[in-house]
Design a protein around this nucleic acid. Structure first.
Lengths: 239, 239
DNA sequence: CCTTACTGAGTACACCGTTCGCAGTAATCG
DNA sequence: CGATTACTGCGAACGGTGTACTCAGTAAGG
């Protein structure tokens, strides 16, 4: 049930016999990514995809065993084309570059933040990215297991942040309202929270913190947190 | 469109006039949580919920404006009843306790890891939890904005880890196979990756690392990463 | 050249979230 | 005490969804 036979990356794109497919995986994938970026991931339905590509809905199942596999293709394609970072030799700078690249990629493709598109199926592009980031901390005297912990920890931070950063944005988008209007719907509740007196520190957050009023608060929070995480990872290094 | 009027936490549960509702929010919420825990979040449909509660599907819309609100209720209920941690006065121990509690909660309710159930709508229980964890780092000489960064960073790490830890488990569950069978479907692909020779470090991971063979690898990775993150957060403290 | 194995796709099934309208009921007001 | 008002439960229906089945058509291998 997982798929007709094995992982999609192991199935040949074109069969040995029979007529040539009228579509390519790449064609389908880029169409899906464009649709997801512009209309949201929930707009990527098999029928919508088929319409976009000018074929019947059922035809797509010649290319993909289940919709999940389409998502896998999308995720790996984006990892290949949109995740950019540099490995120059300074581990800290390199990991920072990776983190920024991963964040930027996720913000460009919000649907990448949801777990259905995780590293569930390690596509070739995804594998290349992790190979690259691992190479940035290779030769520092770390065991391979320690290297894994390091990358997984950083990855978790970035993805967790992206989740936080996108959750509000997604809530706004789904409500159909614009940012301002949505804010208005939240204000009365927040005020009631404050007036209840049961949340003194959250009250300070709302009243005193710069963050809620800073348009770049998410970016700032990310950058500050990232430096702390990198500080923490530095404590893993030998000596 | 966001909801009939305002946030659900601001709407009274029972109307001033008319017959008494035959269900309560709590009843609906606990039924939904149980269903999500046992059958997966995608099994939580309005019809299934209605059947479970012995009412018509449309009746649920007397309690909830959209399905999203039901998810909000579920998330906040779990934050209230299943997220346990202690604040004793040692900030590091307290944040560790929070992290462990948050991870345990997420593993017990995998659907909590997806962004649709994030802190999108800050329910009363969710607010109480964040109030509590903020109190653990109050009085350390940090600005309120710095306290926010600290909590958000830790939260991001834990949620990101939970996403990683659950993604495989979710993939297995959705495939309908058991763990062993699913593993078998992945092996040929992994072998091809290795044999391609393009991923030398990933090859070392597969061949040399203890992690892939360690049944507790996820817990270990979490604990190790958590200590690094806490080390990093310590570098935020004044002096 | 014929067998084999594929491709495209119409149709159908079993779901899904949500809306509408209507009958019934309880609290409030005059 | 009506009458009014505002609610409750919910059957039916609308427009979607993923996907299985089937069948005709086509290209390559032996």
């Amino acid at each position: 049930m997982s798929s007709s036979r094995g992982v999609i990356w192991d199935r040949p794109e074109r069969a040995a016999r029979g007529p040539a497919p009228s579509l390519s995986r790449e064609q389908i994938t880029t169409a899906a990514v464009t649709l997801a970026d512009t209309q949201g991931i929930e707009a990527v339905s098999m029928r919508a995809m088929a319409a976009e590509l000018g074929v019947g809905a059922a035809s797509l199942y010649r290319y993909v065993a289940r919709k999940d596999e389409l998502i896998d293709l999308m995720a790996d394609a984006v990892m290949g084309s949109d995740l950019q970072f540099e490995v120059r030799g300074d581990w800290r700078e390199d990991l920072r570059s990776f983190a920024h690249g991963l964040r930027a990629m996720t913000l460009r493709h919000p649907w990448m933040a949801v777990p259905s598109a995780g590293l569930r199926n390690l596509g070739p592009n995804t594998a290349r990215c992790y190979e690259q980031v691992l190479s940035a901390i290779d030769g520092l005297g770390l065991e391979i297991d320690e290297m894994l912990v390091m990358v997984e920890t950083l990855d978790a931070f970035v993805r967790g942040r992206a989740l936080e950063e996108l959750s509000e944005q997604e809530a706004v988008r789904r409500s159909g309202l614009d940012q301002k209007q949505w804010m208005q719907t939240q204000i009365p509740y927040i005020e009631r929270l404050i007036q209840s007196g049961r949340y003194p520190i959250l009250t300070r957050v709302v009243l005193d913190a710069r963050a809620p009023r800073d348009p770049d608060r998410l970016k700032h929070g990310f950058d500050l947190g990232l430096e702390r995480v990198l500080n923490g990872l530095a404590t893993m290094l030998p000596e």
